[in-house]
Design a protein around this nucleic acid. Structure first.
Length: 581
RNA sequence: GCCCCGGUAGCUCAGUCGGAUAGAGCACAAGGUUCCUAACCUUGGGGUCAGAGGUUCGAAUCCUCUUCGGGGCACCA
């Protein structure tokens, strides 16, 4: 609907000689917006004010020149100049009626782009280290990423979702040692988990499920452990434990325990997310990059480009040549590559796999990392704009006004699973995305749990359920819903409430477009609340199941369309649409 | 010290490349159901858009400075 108005404005511009040259300007594409107040019509354009200066004309005069050139359309009832030079469009009733029958006919396709003509996007999100269960912070990433993916899909992008599994590096060794200690603990209960190990109960669960025989050589690890002195650095201590475990068990045995532990945790995360309605097209292993030689290829490519140098025994990448603030180590003094090296290879690999645009969803604490990854990507021959990073701010969990702690190592965090069990998937999904991702989120457990009017999820779901209930009532009263009669009599929808709700419904495609462009699912959440509000208001104002067959079917058609949009919208948010509550 | 995000009603937050009288929910006050679910609706009060300058026809929105809160500035990930 909005596109139609934009096209009208453009064809008006086209016939004004001094404005013709601005036709392709982005100003023309963004010159039309919904009005806040219906006394200004349905759509409004500020185009005359925008071009007043370059044409040296009074905005109102320019507006009248443009209006004269705008072609007739049966969508538009009236065009008028208002205020300092706005061009206001009052839509005809039939324009809205057409939109409603379009919703009814296209059903769940309404508002969604049919052909995937836009960029191929790789959306990477969550990517939490597989060292323990997801906590409530990861939940926000999961909800935001999944919803954004759905919305981008709906807006016509081809989207693949990916989870990057950090299955290489030191923290995996720490995980493995933590598991070994819990295995030893089964026969040696007084053994102590070092401070730098993973403390969570799930480590014990893994140890128990491994069902490993106690190898007598493991006692050496135990002895080593007993020698822990209070003065020793806890990070150094765990490193020496890792070394001694590898030596006594042998690398092969150590890696078996590591691999099994990793897969147990990773598959648990996958299951957790799946239950949350969040699925991925690929689970990309960091380790596979090294195994398939991508890290070496990357390093030698950078070397060939003379972008690497040695200093202090380490190998550095000239990140400063690509707008990073300092050069970065790719290979440490101990010959191990850094995490950053994997990331260069990884992001290069994403491009090689044929994606036009890469979106990474990261925690806001990673913002300092962006410039460096982008530098790596550009060094590998790609565009700086190929990589887009969306930052998600932290989640604070509140219970009875008290802030809950969230530290992974200590094991005292609230998991995503616990949250879902407590408040339910629907409330969790909605609460996570109802605020802008750039905003710190105070997640109020009591509120999310409350089955009351304080909870915005139920407000929207209730609108959907109420409509289902009206259809049930219709049957009980022995009436049939006839869609054709409804469409034939759609012009009977003419009350103020009906106009308001039709206007709200016709906004849905614009909201999808807006949410996609702004990477802002909360826009959609807010829209659904407004739509539900229009419906509840209509419900209280009007009787749908009336005697007159024509009016009855027209109204049922309208609320059917409303139900469709609410369902489509909630589906994008990953929230269910109950038929009764 | 440098960088990123934020500061909008009592509380939690929306606010579309800058647009018309700054909005919503909760809370508060007053009403509404012989009729399709009251998990609902209607009405009302409530604002130095953190502060100060600037840009212009027009600023919550853009620029500069100040201030407060969160985060980041590794041969960790």
């Amino acid at each position: 609907m909005k596109t139609a108005i934009i096209n009208l404005v453009k064809s008006g511009l086209q016939r004004v000689p001094e404005l013709e040259k601005f036709l392709d300007d982005h100003i023309a594409d963004n010159a039309v917006e919904r009005t806040k107040d219906l006394i200004h019509g349905d759509f409004s354009s500020n185009i005359a004010m925008r071009f007043a200066k370059v044409t040296k004309k009074n905005p109102r005069d320019l507006a009248s020149i443009i209006i004269k050139e705008i072609p007739e359309s049966n969508l538009v009832k009236k065009i008028e100049i208002a205020g300092p030079g706005f061009i206001n469009f009052h839509m005809s009733d039939s324009a809205f009626h057409k939109e409603i029958s379009k919703i009814i006919k296209t059903k769940n396709l309404y508002g969604k782009s049919q052909n995937k003509t836009k960029e191929k996007i790789l959306l990477e999100f969550v990517s939490a280290n597989p060292t323990g269960p997801l906590h409530v912070g990861h939940g926000r990433h999961a909800a935001y990423g999944a919803t954004l993916g759905n919305i981008l899909d709906a807006a016509g992008y081809s989207v693949k979702r990916e989870y990057y599994v950090n299955d290489a590096g030191r923290q995996m060794d720490i995980l493995c040692v933590s598991v070994i200690i819990r295995i030893l603990e089964i026969n040696t209960p007084d053994i102590v988990m070092p401070a730098a190990g993973y403390q969570g109960d799930y480590i014990g669960t893994i140890a128990a499920s491994l069902n490993k025989k106690i190898n007598s050589s493991l006692i050496k690890v135990f002895v080593h452990l007993q020698n822990e002195s209070a003065s020793q650095d806890k990070e150094q201590f765990i490193d020496s434990l890792i070394k001694s475990a590898k030596d006594t068990l042998g690398l092969e045995e150590f890696n078996i325990i590591k691999k099994i532990s990793l897969e147990l945790i990773r598959s648990d995360i996958e299951e957790d997310l799946k239950e949350f309605g969040v699925t991925f097209d690929t689970w990309f292993s960091e380790n596979s990059l090294a195994e398939q030689g991508h890290i070496q290829t990357t390093l030698s490519l950078l070397k060939d480009k003379e972008l690497l140098y040695k200093k202090d025994g380490a190998i550095w990448f000239k990140a400063t040549e690509f707008d990073d603030e300092k050069d970065r180590v790719v290979t440490r003094e101990n010959k191990n590559n850094t995490y950053f090296t994997s990331d260069i290879a990884y992001h290069h690999n994403k491009k090689v796999r044929g994606f036009d645009h890469l979106i990474d969803i990261l925690g806001s604490d990673h913002h300092g990392y962006i410039a460096r990854v982008r530098a790596g990507l550009v060094a590998m021959g790609h565009q700086a704009t190929d990589l887009e990073v969306e930052l998600v701010q932290f989640v604070s969990l509140f219970r009875a006004g008290e802030k809950q702690s969230m530290s992974t190592r200590s094991g005292e965090f609230i998991t995503l699973r616990q949250l879902r069990e407590e408040v339910g998937n629907d409330a969790a999904r909605f609460f996570y995305i109802m605020r802008s991702n750039e905003q710190h989120l105070d997640f109020d457990l009591e509120l999310a749990k409350s089955k009351s009017n304080e909870n915005p999820v139920y407000y929207i779901q209730y609108a959907h359920a109420r409509i289902a209930s009206v259809f049930r009532q219709l049957e009980e009263k022995k009436y049939n819903y006839n869609e054709e009669i409804g469409i034939d009599n759609i012009s009977l929808l003419a009350t103020n409430k009906e106009k308001l709700i039709m206007s709200a419904l016709s906004r849905f495609p614009e909201v999808i477009e807006l949410s996609a462009n702004n990477r802002a699912p909360h826009n959609l959440a807010q829209y659904l609340r407004e739509l539900a509000n229009e419906f509840h208001s209509y419900y209280n104002d009007s009787i749908f199941i009336v005697e007159d067959k024509n009016t009855r079917n027209a109204r049922m058609l309208l609320i059917k369309a409303t139900q469709l949009i609410i369902k489509n919208g909630l589906e994008l948010l990953g929230v269910s649409s109950p038929k009764s509550m």
